[in-house]
Amino acid sequence: KLLSSIEQACDICRLKKLKCSKEKPKCAKCLKNNWECRYSPKTKRSPLTRAHLTEVESRLERLE
């Protein structure tokens, strides 16, 4: 599967780190437990900047 097509777990399953069936409108866990089942939009991760990478590398060197 391509990364862009990976389905996201519902908010509660993601928060509780449960295996989500990803069914809509309610996944199996939410249906069974009568929880409100919501699927928040995916958040875009910002790409690493060179400055951040350099900072992490220098912190790693100090720890070694």
Rank of each mutant, 00 (worst) to 15 (best):
K1D: 07
K1N: 15
K1Y: 10
L2R: 12
L2V: 15
L2D: 15
L2H: 14
L2Y: 14
L2P: 15
L2C: 13
L3F: 14
L3D: 15
L3Q: 09
L3P: 10
L3R: 11
S4W: 09
S4Q: 11
S4P: 12
S5P: 12
I6L: 10
E7L: 12
E7R: 07
E7W: 12
E7V: 10
Q8K: 08
Q8F: 15
Q8W: 11
A9Q: 07
A9R: 01
A9V: 09
A9P: 05
A9I: 08
A9F: 01
C10I: 02
C10P: 00
C10L: 01
D11F: 02
D11I: 05
D11L: 05
D11H: 06
D11E: 02
D11W: 04
I12W: 15
I12L: 12
I12Q: 11
I12Y: 14
I12H: 12
I12A: 11
I12R: 12
C13P: 03
C13D: 01
C13R: 05
R14E: 01
R14S: 07
R14F: 03
R14Q: 03
R14P: 06
R14N: 00
R14Y: 07
L15K: 10
K16D: 00
K16G: 00
K16M: 01
K17L: 04
K17R: 07
K17F: 02
L18Y: 08
L18F: 01
L18M: 15
L18V: 01
K19W: 04
K19F: 02
K19S: 05
K19P: 07
K19M: 03
K19D: 01
C20H: 01
C20W: 01
C20Q: 04
C20K: 06
S21G: 05
S21Q: 03
S21K: 03
S21P: 04
S21L: 04
S21R: 03
K22N: 06
K22W: 01
K22A: 01
E23L: 08
E23V: 11
E23A: 12
K24G: 11
K24L: 14
K24Y: 15
K24W: 15
K24H: 13
K24D: 09
K24F: 15
K24Q: 14
P25M: 04
P25Y: 02
P25N: 04
P25Q: 08
P25I: 04
P25W: 00
P25C: 00
P25F: 03
K26N: 15
K26Y: 13
K26H: 14
K26Q: 15
K26T: 11
K26I: 15
K26L: 15
C27Y: 04
C27F: 07
C27A: 00
C27D: 08
C27M: 00
C27Q: 02
C27S: 08
C27N: 00
A28V: 14
A28E: 14
A28H: 12
A28I: 14
A28K: 14
K29R: 11
K29G: 03
K29L: 07
K29V: 02
C30R: 03
C30G: 07
C30D: 01
C30E: 05
C30Q: 00
C30T: 07
L31W: 14
L31I: 12
L31A: 15
L31H: 14
L31Q: 12
L31R: 15
K32Q: 10
K32M: 10
K32I: 09
K32G: 10
K32F: 09
K32S: 09
K32W: 07
K32V: 09
N33I: 02
N33L: 10
N33D: 06
N34Y: 11
N34C: 14
N34H: 11
N34I: 09
W35D: 09
W35K: 12
W35G: 12
W35R: 14
W35S: 13
W35N: 11
E36L: 10
E36R: 11
E36H: 11
C37M: 07
C37D: 09
C37Q: 08
C37T: 03
C37R: 01
C37N: 03
C37V: 03
R38N: 15
R38P: 06
R38V: 10
R38W: 11
R38F: 14
Y39R: 05
Y39T: 06
S40N: 04
S40G: 08
S40D: 02
S40M: 03
P41V: 07
P41A: 08
P41I: 03
P41C: 05
P41K: 06
P41H: 06
K42Q: 09
K42M: 10
K42N: 09
K42I: 08
K42W: 06
K42V: 05
K42H: 09
T43F: 08
K44N: 10
K44F: 08
K44S: 05
K44D: 06
K44W: 06
K44T: 10
R45M: 04
R45E: 08
R45K: 06
R45T: 05
R45L: 03
R45H: 01
S46L: 00
S46N: 01
S46Q: 02
P47V: 07
P47D: 10
P47M: 06
P47Q: 01
P47G: 06
L48E: 02
L48T: 06
T49F: 04
T49M: 07
T49Q: 08
T49R: 01
T49H: 08
T49K: 00
T49A: 02
T49W: 05
R50D: 06
R50V: 06
R50P: 00
R50S: 09
R50N: 00
A51S: 09
A51N: 13
A51R: 11
A51P: 01
A51F: 11
H52K: 05
H52P: 03
H52M: 03
H52C: 04
L53C: 10
L53K: 04
L53N: 02
L53M: 15
L53F: 03
T54D: 09
T54W: 08
T54L: 07
T54N: 09
T54P: 08
E55F: 13
E55K: 09
E55L: 11
E55C: 13
V56L: 10
V56R: 00
V56A: 00
V56G: 00
V56K: 04
V56C: 13
E57V: 07
E57T: 03
E57Y: 06
E57Q: 04
E57R: 10
S58Y: 13
S58L: 13
S58V: 13
S58C: 15
R59F: 03
R59Y: 02
R59E: 02
R59T: 04
L60D: 00
L60Y: 09
L60K: 10
L60I: 08
L60H: 05
L60V: 15
L60T: 02
E61M: 14
R62F: 12
R62P: 09
R62C: 09
R62K: 11
R62G: 06
L63N: 00
L63W: 00
L63I: 15
L63C: 07
E64M: 15
E64Q: 14
E64I: 09
E64D: 09
E64W: 06
